[in-house]
Design a protein around this nucleic acid. Structure first.
Lengths: 166, 166
DNA sequence: GTGAAGTTTCAAAAAGTACTGAACCAACAA
DNA sequence: TTGTTGGTTCAGTACTTTTTGAAACTTCAC
């Protein structure tokens, strides 16, 4: 395999992985490209490498910045913006967890709360509310677990965790 | 809120959550419906409640069974098949992790392996291979962490984990 | 001011994904 | 054997998401 083939393969695979992670294909490909790029790239570089339109590049770069997966880098004397990827994988995963927790878990907790306030009487209602309460309990625990996970640092993850749970 | 409104809301929200979890909307809705249903339901019950076609119901029930989120239940004397949901949330999450690990993480590890075997010489190649190796290291660790997590049991999760990592 | 270089926005088109419905298959009862 | 009930499959359609490309905007130099 040549260097170019390897790079392409990585970008393709990372793109595929991303799409099952709430990150769309192009967003993940841009991230992959920046990950393996030693220097910062401009929007134009990215458009060329991935053969995507200006609008597409712009929107996805912006989204990546929002997610904390990519940083803007301004070069002295250059008006153009350059971009670099967050290269610490633990940071990447952590940021994804933060975003998805906010977008998915938290709204679900809210809904479960609302639902458990059913005022209708009767055994059917009680049974239902009971099931919902169990789900809520589990979700709240997942929520705090993720909070702790987010606070923990990279070293802790790569080092201690595995041994701890063995 | 009435019981029916509560049920509908839960089914809708669970459906929305599912679609960001590699489980499509209908699949998640069927799962939600079965979760809050005290008795097993037939394909026909499901079709009616969710207003979906026979084909759709069949395909998604099948997928849920594949994922280990729903079980078939045969009633004596009935030719019809009935279905019940896995109600232990930890089992649900665990099964989703197992499926996604298999479908996403493992192929990525394989690709990273292939890529690190680039035979081209030169500093650019070495630099690239180095980055790929780091990603691979992280991914392997994630992989074993998930393996341990899968082996752990529900009690461990809801009880010990939170305290441990505090 | 004007124009050049760059960025942002968004309506329309394309691509991707899920759903329907009808045809088909299987098991059983009459 | 035929009719009935239920399960499965899949081509075509409907729906959703992503991408394009062009116009609008911003910033700065002259």
């Amino acid at each position: 395999m040549t260097l170019q083939e390897g790079k392409d393969k990585f970008i393709q695979s990372w793109g595929a992985l991303g799409s099952s992670w709430g990150i769309n294909r192009t967003m993940a490909q841009i991230h992959a490209l920046l990950l393996i790029s030693p220097q910062a790239l401009s929007a134009e570089d990215i458009m060329e490498e991935l053969k995507i339109s200006r609008g597409n590049a712009n929107m996805n770069i912006r989204a990546l910045i929002d997610w904390g997966l990519v940083y803007k880098e301004l070069k002295a004397g250059e008006r153009k913006e350059f971009f670099v990827a967050e290269k610490d994988m633990w940071e990447v995963v952590k940021n994804i967890i933060i975003q998805r927790k906010k977008k998915e878990l938290e709204p679900m907790l809210k809904v479960l709360d609302e639902i458990s306030s059913i005022d209708e009487a009767g055994p059917k209602s009680e049974e239902f509310v009971q099931i919902i309460r169990e789900i809520k309990l589990f979700s709240s625990k997942a929520d705090s677990t993720l909070d702790s996970l987010i606070k923990a640092d990279s070293n802790w993850f790569v080092g201690t965790f595995m041994k701890m749970i063995k």
